[in-house]
Design a protein around this nucleic acid. Structure first.
Length: 241
DNA sequence: TCATTAAATTGTT
DNA sequence: AACAATTTAATGA
């Protein structure tokens, strides 16, 4: 029941990777933006692995080997490891791809990404990523849009941290994970337990439970077993109490 | 496929 | 942090 994760967990992409089935390929948003030739090259490089809760997808200081996307499950991005307190930057929801900034610069990771629950993570090798950047206009458009939207989220995250109301903090964090461009596969229902949400937002599970009740009373969301259904994205993003 | 059991998640104290 | 109630997942006939 504890979310604690042993620091020695191993990197997942080394073993047990496999190719993707067509159904999984259809869930990768940027593939649609590629020409047939580009797409073929991308699909050649694509692999899928499963990560257990606590597994690291990438670690601070490690060299970039893949560009990653979450097919299914839930991830968190934090700073941890070296100095200071653990700060969770953001949750990563299904359909989201991440690490492009680091991949573009060919720099070591400056953050950790860990699985919050058992997840399926897809990836393309950095060489394939480079090739797509060099050859595909559609891919460049996607990556640029991705960087832009994520910048917006990090700016919003700074404001969220200063919010006094726990209810609003929960609302804004949910809104981030319901972002239709960054996490297109979330759809109307985000699969996340109240414990996981508490861990992401930095509140107790009880408090998150209260907040969710408040938000559902307002008609912004509906609370379901093991997840949250989106009713009013604008309210979650900008609404006041 | 259905019924039973175990596990996970939630709402509340 | 601990509890009971509820929902889902797993198991086996």
């Amino acid at each position: 029941m504890s979310l604690a994760n042993p620091p020695g967990s191993t990197s997942p992409l080394s073993t047990r990777a496999r190719a993707l089935v067509p159904d999984e390929l259809a869930q990768i948003p940027w593939l649609q933006a590629l020409d047939p030739a580009e797409r073929e090259r991308a699909e050649e490089g694509l692999v899928l692995t499963s990560a257990q809760a606590g597994d690291h997808i990438c670690r601070i200081g490690r060299p970039v080997t893949y560009w990653f996307g979450l097919v299914d499950g839930l991830l968190k991005m934090n700073n941890d490891d070296s100095l200071g307190p653990v700060i969770t930057f953001t949750g990563l929801a299904p359909g989201g791809w991440f690490g492009e900034g680091t991949a573009l610069k060919h720099e070591p990771y400056r953050y950790n990404v860990q699985a919050l629950r058992k997840s399926h993570v897809a990836g393309i090798p950095i060489a394939t990523f480079d090739w797509l950047i060099a050859h595909s206009l559609g891919f460049n458009r996607f990556v640029m849009s991705q960087l832009n939207e994520r910048l917006g989220q990090f700016i919003a995250a700074r404001e969220i941290d200063r919010l006094g109301s726990p209810d609003l903090r929960v609302a804004r964090n949910l809104a981030a994970m319901f972002h239709p461009l960054l996490y297109p596969n979330v759809g109307g229902t985000l699969r996340i337990t109240q414990q996981e949400l508490a861990y992401l937002v930095g509140l107790s599970r009880q408090r998150v439970n209260e907040a969710l009740t408040t938000l559902s009373t307002l008609g912004w969301i509906r609370v379901e077993y093991g997840g949250v259904r989106l009713l009013d994205l604008q309210a979650l993003r900008h609404g006041q109490l």
